[in-house]
Simulated scan of single mutants.
Amino acid sequence: MSDFDWNDERISALRKMWSEGLSATQIAARLGGASRNAVLGKVHRLRLQDRAPGCAPKPKTERIATRKKLQLARPPKPTVKPLVGQAQFARKKPDPVKVAEVKSIELRPAPIDMPKPLLTALIDLGRTDCRWPVEGEKSHMLFCGHPAQPESSYCAGHHRLSVGAGTRSERLAIPSKLMVA
Protein backbone atom coordinates (compact mmCIF):
# COMPACT_ATOMS: atom_id res chain seq x y z
CA MET A 1 0.00 0.00 0.00
CA SER A 2 1.17 3.55 -0.61
CA ASP A 3 1.58 6.24 2.01
CA PHE A 4 -0.63 8.60 -0.01
CA ASP A 5 -3.72 9.80 1.88
CA TRP A 6 -6.76 11.14 0.07
CA ASN A 7 -7.89 14.18 2.06
CA ASP A 8 -10.63 16.61 1.06
CA GLU A 9 -8.16 19.07 -0.47
CA ARG A 10 -6.58 16.41 -2.71
CA ILE A 11 -9.97 15.01 -3.73
CA SER A 12 -11.19 18.46 -4.80
CA ALA A 13 -7.93 19.00 -6.72
CA LEU A 14 -8.42 15.60 -8.38
CA ARG A 15 -12.00 16.46 -9.37
CA LYS A 16 -10.87 19.79 -10.84
CA MET A 17 -7.92 18.36 -12.80
CA TRP A 18 -10.00 15.41 -14.04
CA SER A 19 -12.73 17.74 -15.32
CA GLU A 20 -10.06 19.87 -17.05
CA GLY A 21 -9.06 16.79 -19.01
CA LEU A 22 -5.66 16.03 -17.51
CA SER A 23 -4.49 12.44 -17.75
CA ALA A 24 -4.13 10.24 -14.68
CA THR A 25 -0.34 10.39 -15.02
CA GLN A 26 -0.37 14.20 -15.10
CA ILE A 27 -2.70 14.35 -12.10
CA ALA A 28 -0.49 11.94 -10.14
CA ALA A 29 2.58 14.07 -10.89
CA ARG A 30 0.85 17.27 -9.78
CA LEU A 31 -0.52 15.72 -6.59
CA GLY A 32 2.91 14.31 -5.74
CA GLY A 33 3.20 10.93 -4.04
CA ALA A 34 0.24 9.34 -5.84
CA SER A 35 0.65 6.74 -8.54
CA ARG A 36 -1.26 6.73 -11.80
CA ASN A 37 -3.19 3.66 -10.62
CA ALA A 38 -4.06 5.37 -7.32
CA VAL A 39 -5.55 8.27 -9.29
CA LEU A 40 -7.49 5.95 -11.59
CA GLY A 41 -8.78 3.96 -8.62
CA LYS A 42 -9.97 7.11 -6.86
CA VAL A 43 -11.61 8.39 -10.07
CA HIS A 44 -13.42 5.08 -10.34
CA ARG A 45 -14.56 5.11 -6.70
CA LEU A 46 -15.73 8.71 -7.02
CA ARG A 47 -17.45 7.78 -10.29
CA LEU A 48 -15.95 10.72 -12.15
CA GLN A 49 -16.84 10.22 -15.79
CA ASP A 50 -17.34 13.68 -17.28
CA ARG A 51 -14.24 14.89 -19.02
CA ALA A 52 -13.47 18.18 -20.69
CA PRO A 53 -14.20 18.34 -24.41
CA GLY A 54 -11.24 17.40 -26.54
CA CYS A 55 -9.81 14.86 -24.12
CA ALA A 56 -12.08 12.00 -25.16
CA PRO A 57 -10.36 9.17 -27.03
CA LYS A 58 -10.32 9.45 -30.79
CA PRO A 59 -12.99 7.50 -32.67
CA LYS A 60 -11.81 4.15 -33.95
CA THR A 61 -11.82 5.27 -37.59
CA GLU A 62 -9.40 8.12 -36.80
CA ARG A 63 -7.07 5.78 -34.93
CA ILE A 64 -7.03 3.31 -37.84
CA ALA A 65 -6.35 6.10 -40.32
CA THR A 66 -3.50 7.42 -38.15
CA ARG A 67 -2.03 3.93 -37.88
CA LYS A 68 -2.18 3.47 -41.67
CA LYS A 69 -0.42 6.83 -42.18
CA LEU A 70 2.34 5.72 -39.83
CA GLN A 71 2.73 2.45 -41.71
CA LEU A 72 2.95 4.27 -45.02
CA ALA A 73 5.55 6.68 -43.64
CA ARG A 74 7.93 3.87 -42.67
CA PRO A 75 10.68 3.00 -45.11
CA PRO A 76 10.41 -0.46 -46.65
CA LYS A 77 12.30 -3.23 -44.92
CA PRO A 78 15.50 -4.20 -46.68
CA THR A 79 15.49 -7.60 -48.31
CA VAL A 80 17.92 -10.04 -46.78
CA LYS A 81 19.95 -12.15 -49.14
CA PRO A 82 21.00 -15.58 -47.90
CA LEU A 83 24.63 -15.95 -47.01
CA VAL A 84 26.82 -18.20 -49.09
CA GLY A 85 26.20 -21.79 -48.03
CA GLN A 86 22.76 -21.14 -46.54
CA ALA A 87 20.95 -22.39 -49.61
CA GLN A 88 21.75 -25.96 -48.64
CA PHE A 89 19.66 -25.56 -45.47
CA ALA A 90 16.55 -24.30 -47.26
CA ARG A 91 13.51 -26.53 -46.85
CA LYS A 92 12.72 -28.59 -49.90
CA LYS A 93 9.36 -30.06 -50.75
CA PRO A 94 9.31 -33.85 -50.50
CA ASP A 95 9.48 -35.82 -53.72
CA PRO A 96 5.96 -37.24 -54.33
CA VAL A 97 7.39 -40.44 -55.80
CA LYS A 98 9.47 -41.12 -52.68
CA VAL A 99 6.55 -40.27 -50.42
CA ALA A 100 4.37 -42.79 -52.25
CA GLU A 101 7.04 -45.46 -51.76
CA VAL A 102 7.09 -44.99 -47.99
CA LYS A 103 4.67 -47.37 -46.35
CA SER A 104 2.83 -45.97 -43.39
CA ILE A 105 3.31 -47.94 -40.23
CA GLU A 106 0.21 -47.97 -38.11
CA LEU A 107 0.73 -49.01 -34.54
CA ARG A 108 -2.38 -50.46 -32.99
CA PRO A 109 -2.47 -51.87 -29.52
CA ALA A 110 -3.19 -55.55 -29.24
CA PRO A 111 -6.82 -56.29 -28.51
CA ILE A 112 -7.54 -56.13 -24.82
CA ASP A 113 -9.10 -59.17 -23.23
CA MET A 114 -11.32 -57.44 -20.69
CA PRO A 115 -12.58 -59.65 -17.90
CA LYS A 116 -16.19 -59.21 -16.80
CA PRO A 117 -16.20 -56.73 -13.87
CA LEU A 118 -16.97 -58.13 -10.45
CA LEU A 119 -18.99 -54.99 -9.52
CA THR A 120 -17.47 -54.50 -6.07
CA ALA A 121 -18.26 -51.58 -3.74
CA LEU A 122 -15.34 -49.40 -2.69
CA ILE A 123 -15.57 -50.49 0.93
CA ASP A 124 -15.26 -54.15 -0.15
CA LEU A 125 -12.19 -53.64 -2.40
CA GLY A 126 -8.90 -55.04 -1.17
CA ARG A 127 -5.57 -53.23 -1.36
CA THR A 128 -4.65 -54.95 -4.63
CA ASP A 129 -8.05 -54.91 -6.38
CA CYS A 130 -8.81 -52.95 -9.55
CA ARG A 131 -10.41 -49.58 -8.78
CA TRP A 132 -11.77 -48.88 -12.27
CA PRO A 133 -15.27 -47.37 -11.82
CA VAL A 134 -17.80 -49.40 -13.77
CA GLU A 135 -21.26 -48.15 -12.87
CA GLY A 136 -23.21 -46.09 -10.37
CA GLU A 137 -22.74 -42.63 -8.92
CA LYS A 138 -21.13 -41.20 -5.78
CA SER A 139 -21.59 -43.55 -2.82
CA HIS A 140 -23.26 -46.21 -5.00
CA MET A 141 -20.27 -46.55 -7.37
CA LEU A 142 -19.23 -50.10 -8.25
CA PHE A 143 -15.68 -51.02 -9.32
CA CYS A 144 -14.05 -53.75 -11.41
CA GLY A 145 -12.56 -55.66 -8.45
CA HIS A 146 -10.15 -57.94 -10.38
CA PRO A 147 -6.53 -58.22 -9.13
CA ALA A 148 -4.58 -55.05 -10.01
CA GLN A 149 -1.21 -55.00 -11.74
CA PRO A 150 1.85 -54.33 -9.57
CA GLU A 151 2.24 -50.58 -8.86
CA SER A 152 -1.11 -49.77 -10.49
CA SER A 153 -4.65 -49.24 -9.26
CA TYR A 154 -6.07 -51.14 -12.21
CA CYS A 155 -6.13 -54.67 -13.64
CA ALA A 156 -4.23 -55.30 -16.91
CA GLY A 157 -7.18 -54.42 -19.16
CA HIS A 158 -8.13 -51.22 -17.37
CA HIS A 159 -4.49 -50.19 -17.00
CA ARG A 160 -4.12 -50.25 -20.80
CA LEU A 161 -7.27 -48.14 -21.11
CA SER A 162 -5.99 -45.60 -18.59
CA VAL A 163 -2.60 -45.13 -20.26
CA GLY A 164 -3.95 -44.29 -23.72
CA ALA A 165 -2.05 -44.04 -26.98
CA GLY A 166 0.34 -41.29 -25.88
CA THR A 167 1.35 -38.18 -27.75
CA ARG A 168 2.33 -38.19 -31.41
CA SER A 169 6.02 -37.90 -30.55
CA GLU A 170 5.73 -40.80 -28.10
CA ARG A 171 4.06 -42.96 -30.74
CA LEU A 172 6.75 -42.06 -33.29
CA ALA A 173 9.51 -42.90 -30.82
CA ILE A 174 8.33 -46.48 -30.33
CA PRO A 175 9.89 -47.92 -33.54
CA SER A 176 13.24 -46.26 -32.77
CA LYS A 177 13.16 -47.73 -29.26
CA LEU A 178 12.56 -51.17 -30.73
CA MET A 179 15.54 -50.75 -33.06
CA VAL A 180 17.86 -49.70 -30.24
CA ALA A 181 16.90 -52.58 -27.95
Results as ranks from 00 to 15, higher is better:
residue 161 L to V: 08
residue 106 E to Q: 08
residue 113 D to R: 09
residue 10 R to M: 04
residue 47 R to F: 03
residue 63 R to Y: 02
residue 157 G to F: 00
residue 43 V to D: 00
residue 85 G to A: 08
residue 151 E to W: 05
residue 148 A to R: 00
residue 27 I to M: 01
residue 137 E to Q: 12
residue 127 R to I: 07
residue 63 R to H: 07
residue 174 I to A: 12
residue 37 N to D: 13
residue 150 P to F: 02
residue 174 I to K: 11
residue 146 H to R: 01
residue 49 Q to G: 11
residue 37 N to H: 06
residue 122 L to R: 08
residue 154 Y to H: 07
residue 124 D to M: 05
residue 45 R to L: 14
residue 84 V to D: 13
residue 24 A to V: 01
residue 158 H to F: 03
residue 5 D to E: 12
residue 90 A to L: 10
residue 163 V to H: 12
residue 136 G to A: 11
residue 73 A to V: 02
residue 29 A to W: 01
residue 142 L to M: 09
residue 177 K to E: 09
residue 54 G to E: 09
residue 151 E to A: 13
residue 84 V to E: 11
residue 138 K to R: 11
residue 103 K to N: 03
residue 115 P to D: 02
residue 5 D to S: 10
residue 107 L to K: 06
residue 97 V to T: 15
residue 180 V to R: 14
residue 174 I to G: 13
residue 16 K to C: 08
residue 9 E to Q: 15
residue 157 G to Q: 01
residue 40 L to Q: 05
residue 136 G to P: 02
residue 96 P to V: 09
residue 177 K to W: 03
residue 76 P to Y: 05
residue 7 N to W: 05
residue 116 K to W: 06
residue 69 K to S: 14
residue 87 A to G: 14
residue 35 S to G: 11
residue 40 L to F: 03
residue 106 E to A: 07
residue 118 L to S: 05
residue 150 P to N: 04
residue 6 W to P: 00
residue 165 A to V: 10
residue 54 G to S: 12
residue 126 G to D: 12
residue 55 C to Y: 05
residue 120 T to S: 06
residue 179 M to G: 02
residue 168 R to E: 10
residue 154 Y to R: 02
residue 20 E to Q: 15
residue 110 A to E: 11
residue 140 H to R: 15
residue 55 C to N: 07
residue 103 K to M: 03
residue 140 H to W: 04
residue 87 A to T: 13
residue 155 C to L: 03
residue 67 R to A: 12
residue 19 S to I: 05
residue 101 E to N: 12
residue 157 G to T: 03
residue 101 E to F: 06
residue 107 L to G: 02
residue 71 Q to N: 12
residue 170 E to K: 08
residue 111 P to H: 06
residue 172 L to K: 10
residue 108 R to K: 08
residue 118 L to P: 00
residue 26 Q to A: 08
residue 152 S to F: 02
residue 179 M to V: 12
residue 18 W to M: 01
residue 100 A to S: 06
residue 84 V to Q: 12
residue 103 K to T: 05
residue 90 A to V: 14
residue 30 R to M: 08
residue 141 M to L: 13
residue 45 R to H: 15
residue 34 A to Y: 00
residue 142 L to G: 00
residue 116 K to Q: 15
residue 57 P to R: 07
residue 170 E to R: 09
residue 120 T to P: 01
residue 28 A to W: 00
residue 5 D to H: 09
residue 92 K to L: 10
residue 1 M to Y: 06
